[in-house]
């Protein structure tokens, strides 16, 4: 059986591009946490006139896929305008890497999210962003599209792993179509909580299994 990773991924893992920090960055963002085993930091330098990303660097704590996807995402974003960079998706990263194993797709999502959050932070700091909206079902579902079903390598909304979502007084309840003692149950719970907890008006996230 060959290694589960493509040559390109291994090559980027061993020799990642755009590694490090930018001094006095125009924006930065961190996604993930050491607790869940994956963390990506992105630093941006943006041309104030053209709104083009003139420099981008990353730091990563995590597995090989995490490091390689962060590397590819920075390469994809470099030289692009903020509007163009917003359109980069995890699927682009996945494609560039020659296809990640399903259980590793969340690494690509993390790196892309870090890029998007860094752009959002830039826009926020430069008065390009509107007021904060309260969290509703639609917003939760949008965020959950970034949680990957580790069995299939697709998001949990698309695989219908998430059956329903309720938002009530700052409490989000996510109903999951999986037994609590299933192989990936613990991981799914953590990933969902990790995605929803940062929302500014969310006080509690409950993941309810079958």
């Amino acid at each position: 059986m060959p290694l589960p990773y493509s040559k390109k991924l291994i090559e980027l893992f061993m020799n990642p591009k755009n590694v490090g920090e930018i001094e006095n960055p125009d924006a930065k963002a961190t996604e993930g946490s050491p607790a869940c085993g994956d963390m990506v930091q992105i630093f941006l330098k943006v041309d104030p006139e053209t709104k083009r990303i003139v420099d981008i660097k990353f730091k990563s704590y995590g597995c090989a896929s995490n490091i390689a996807t962060a590397s590819i995402v920075t390469e994809l974003a470099k030289g692009k305008t903020l509007e163009e960079a917003k359109k980069i998706t995890w699927k682009d990263a996945d494609r560039e890497l020659g296809g990640l194993p399903p259980v590793k797709v969340h690494c690509a999502v993390l790196a892309v999210d870090a890029l998007h959050t860094a752009i959002e932070n830039y826009e926020h700091q430069h008065g390009l962003l509107k007021e904060k909206k309260p969290t509703d079902k639609e917003k939760v579902i949008k965020r959950l599209k970034h949680v990957i079903d580790p069995r299939k390598g697709l998001d949990v909304i698309r695989t219908k792993l998430v059956k329903d979502v309720e938002v009530e007084n700052g409490v989000v309840r996510v109903y999951v179509d999986m037994e609590e003692d299933e192989q990936y149950a613990g991981n799914v719970r953590e990933e969902i909580i990790e995605r929803l907890e940062p929302l500014w008006d969310v006080k509690k996230v409950e993941v309810i299994f079958k």
């Binding site: 893992f13 896929s65 995490n66 990936y184 991981n187």
Partner: peptide, 25 residues
């Protein structure tokens, strides 16, 4: 997992207790 893969590329076989390595994540 990074350590394990890197060592593997250098011919050294070890394992880790990391989530990224485990079948349950």
């Amino acid at each position: 997992e990074s350590v394990v893969l890197y060592l593997d590329m250098k011919g050294i076989s070890v394992i880790t207790g990391s989530a990224c390595f485990s079948r349950t994540l």
